[in-house]
């Protein structure tokens, strides 16, 4: 089943590369010490590449949102109120219990349903809540003169930074969980292959 159009796959692979660059350089800046190199990059390079990566990620995000508006791909992210919590419960129960008893996937992948309820919720939170907040706070740190000096007596820069690193942290966790759940296909490698070829292998994910 052809599920991932070329633009989604290209957007996704660019996102992967940029996320890795931004996490490595972000950690290098946050945990910089007296030594020149934290992780694999020096502070000055980390600042430069974090800025470049961030601008590219913002452009990539605009492409993603625009693509979802003008193509059919956006419908996969629409959350229905109907059976929201019960569907979420079913999916959670599958991941934590039923999948070990070889039970069938409660929400198999079809052309109309690319994501299961839990995927849909986390993807919406990641792409439409955390990432916009990360980008806006990042732009604030890149152009500090635009940030409020004081917000209820607290430095605007500190709040912006805390929001930025908190969102960065959540999205890093999201990426780790996302990579792991991508091993839950029919074979551990099948979902990774799907994201490269565009063809979904089976209904198990």
């Amino acid at each position: 089943m052809y599920l991932y159009p070329i633009w989604v796959r290209l957007w996704h692979v660019i996102n992967v590369i940029l996320f890795i660059i931004l996490i490595v350089t972000g950690l290098s800046m946050q945990y910089t010490g007296k030594q020149d190199y934290i992780l694999v990059v020096s502070f000055a390079r980390a600042v430069k590449w974090h800025n470049i990566g961030a601008i590219l990620l913002t452009i990539n995000y605009i492409i993603f949102v625009t693509g979802n508006i003008i193509s059919e791909n956006g419908r996969y992210y629409r959350i229905s109120k109907k059976n929201f919590f019960s569907d979420l419960g079913k999916q959670l129960k599958f991941y934590s219990w039923n999948m070990f008893k070889s039970e069938k996937h409660p929400f198999p992948v079809t052309l109309d349903r690319k994501f299961n309820p839990l995927q849909k919720l986390t993807y919406v939170l990641a792409m439409y809540v955390a990432l916009p907040l990360l980008i806006i706070s990042g732009l604030g740190l890149m152009f500090p003169e635009t940030v409020l000096n004081r917000f209820f007596g607290i430095s605007g820069l500190i709040l912006t930074d805390i929001l930025h690193i908190t969102m960065g942290f959540f999205l890093t966790l999201f990426m780790i969980i996302h990579i792991y759940t991508c091993t839950l296909g029919s074979k551990p490698s099948s979902l990774f292959k799907s994201m490269l070829s565009g063809f979904h292998e089976s209904d198990e994910s």
């Binding site: 800046m29 910089t32 502070f43 600042v47 430095s155 820069l157 805390i162 690193i165």
Partner: peptide, 16 residues
């Protein structure tokens, strides 16, 4: 330093 400015890498919250 936080009273006046924010210095990347120098300001971190240990609880966070």
């Amino acid at each position: 330093i936080l009273n006046e400015s924010y210095v990347i890498g120098a300001n971190r919250n240990k609880y966070l």
